[in-house]
Design a protein around this nucleic acid. Structure first.
Lengths: 347, 347
DNA sequence: TTGAAAGCGCTAACAC
DNA sequence: GTGTTAGCGCTTTCAA
């Protein structure tokens, strides 16, 4: 007994009206008489009528669903962005459909196809780290489906319906490294990320430029291109400490790797920040909870999600695309503060 | 020039076939001749035909989308469950639509309505903490829409199409508290959660029973019903320490609150675990990174998500509903280990 | 083996 | 102010 849903037709026949009139009445169309409108609304209420959104979407040719494609939902960054996205979307009357590419280009392609056929009113995408072929995104572009990249964007790809929201990774890195220099650090190592992702390249550039602007040499042996997980950072730290001239600070392009480095330092009896000062990137939740708490660059992840939705909505209302760059914020905590008193644990 | 999508009708007219034949050919219907099938498939490929899923859903009366409703996506637990859900769902050919209730019953009701009209093939829901009125879920039940509760379920609500996947919160709490007793703790406080959520009530019961089974008295002054955030835990800890007879251990129903407690203890110069031993619940990412690392109960969140999808798929294939209870796992770390050597930082 | 026709539920043009 | 008709894209009888 599968409790059939009540449709416009049901209301129409019960009221001896045509479906169109019922539809109009429910849509508050001024053509319909006040009395009919009331009768319809009343019965609809009683029967618990709910419009079939699939039929509406088919009719209209588009839905009120936004498609979101993220590399993963581990860690804190993407969940926070997604949180911002769903918040802003539902405030604007949209719902959200989420897919994960699992950092896999092929999975990303499939999901893209899936979302385009869902169909969605627009797409919010952050690239998988393995994506090298941008053809699937060309397809989105030629379909004129509004697309907003967030955090990880395709640099070259522009179009009438393509926006992006990123943070200024270069500036974030520059701020962090400059801060380390100001704390008296002179041999600053860098735990870099996969260089084909623009965000990591930018962070590396910011690191390089900050060194240069403060008159410090760029030493290739202090730059470790590694994965972004805790063990990667730990392994890199061990190697760095075996250099003839080990670093007196580490700037990591991610927080997880930095925690790995911190653990190695403590294990081996180094003092943080006095022997080695540390700064990371992302403001992961745990950075405020380590001992010492970690200096890091906050990416305004929640706001990034909200902003991405705003961009999408603007494009849906025919405004031109824009490239939004959010300014990151350096959170100075004890892991990099060599002078003055230690801060409290709270970040 | 909005690059129109190619439809079955387009292929049909180009091939001078009827839409029905094309449809059959694409569906690998054996009735259609091999040659026509090939011609159709070929052209479909060339034109980049993609079925309009909205039309398919309208026709079929259901979609291949699963609706997910979570209280929030902050912290690590729900993102991990959602990760498991999307993984299992996409393996089974389903996509996933996610809504957040923001712990608000009214928002939850709206989202439920939204998802039911999306429409979805089934629902995966974890209750908002403020939900007292279960009427919206009755509606889901009478609509015979398959529903799986995960983590936070409605105890009384059963039906032909309602399953649940929870962990044994009682057992988890029991294990944690028993462990604290074995470490020599005798005055074990409990940071409890909102009691109208079954999970917190169960954890409280496990705490109580473990005390009882080890011959320890239940002292109401040691039980603090609090919010689940860091400051809540900190405030509660301060109060507990002002008791004439302060606790020698704390079992918290959540990890965030426990971190708050830890910070207060360290600030005031108490040694953990020697003065006060600590154990929490959830295995949040940061519990392995605090100093000392926190003993906690792992909830198998990723697996819970996968299992919830399995339950849903089983119900879609007409199997009867089941109530799955996952067994949690106690992760003993330094915050509760009083004898023997300290464990390493890695959790 | 293929085609014609109907209909999923809704809405918009066009009558009356 | 209301009804009739048509069609969004697809699948599935039923008929040929």
């Amino acid at each position: 007994m599968p409790a059939r849903r009540v449709s416009i037709g049901d209301i129409a026949s019960q009221l001896k009206l045509s479906p169109s009139t019922v539809s109009r009445a429910l849509a508050h169309n001024p053509d319909v008489s006040e009395t009919t409108r009331q009768r319809v609304q009343q019965l609809a209420q009683e029967l618990g009528y709910q419009p079939n959104q699939v039929a509406v979407a088919l009719r209209r040719g588009h839905s009120n669903t936004l498609g979101v494609l993220v590399p993963h939902l581990a860690g804190t960054f993407f969940p926070e962005v997604v949180d911002g996205i769903t918040e802003a979307a539902s405030q604007a009357g949209y719902n959200v459909m989420i897919c994960q590419s699992r950092e896999d280009a092929e999975q990303e392609r499939k999901n893209l196809e899936l979302l385009m056929n869902a169909p969605v009113a627009g797409l919010l995408v952050s690239l998988a780290s393995s994506t090298q072929n941008y053809a699937p995104f060309e397809a989105v572009r030629t379909a004129n489906l509004p697309l907003v990249f967030f955090d990880r964007a395709i640099e070259g790809l522009t179009g009438e319906h393509i926006s992006s929201v990123v943070i200024d990774d270069y500036a974030g890195a520059y701020m962090a490294v400059s801060h380390l220099v100001e704390q008296g650090c002179r041999r600053i190592a860098h735990l870099a990320g996969p260089p084909h992702l623009a965000i990591y390249e930018q962070r590396h550039r910011g690191y390089e430029q900050a060194l240069h602007d403060h008159g410090l040499p760029y030493r290739p042996e202090l730059v470790c291109p590694i994965g972004q997980h805790q063990p990667d950072g730990a392994a890199a730290m061990r190697q760095l400490l075996q250099l003839p001239c080990p670093p007196d600070a580490v700037f990591s392009s991610g927080d997880s790797a930095l925690v790995g480095a911190l653990q190695v330092l403590k294990e081996l009896g180094y003092r943080v920040p006095d022997d080695v000062a540390l700064a990371g990137f992302s403001n992961a939740e745990f950075t405020a909870l380590t001992e010492p708490p970690l200096t890091t660059v906050d990416q305004h992840s929640h706001q990034m999600g909200r902003e991405a939705v705003n961009q999408l909505l603007r494009m849906l209302h025919t405004a031109t695309p824009t490239a939004v760059v959010l300014r990151p914020q350096l959170l100075v905590r004890a892991s990099s503060q060599r002078v003055g008193q230690q801060q409290s644990l709270a970040g």
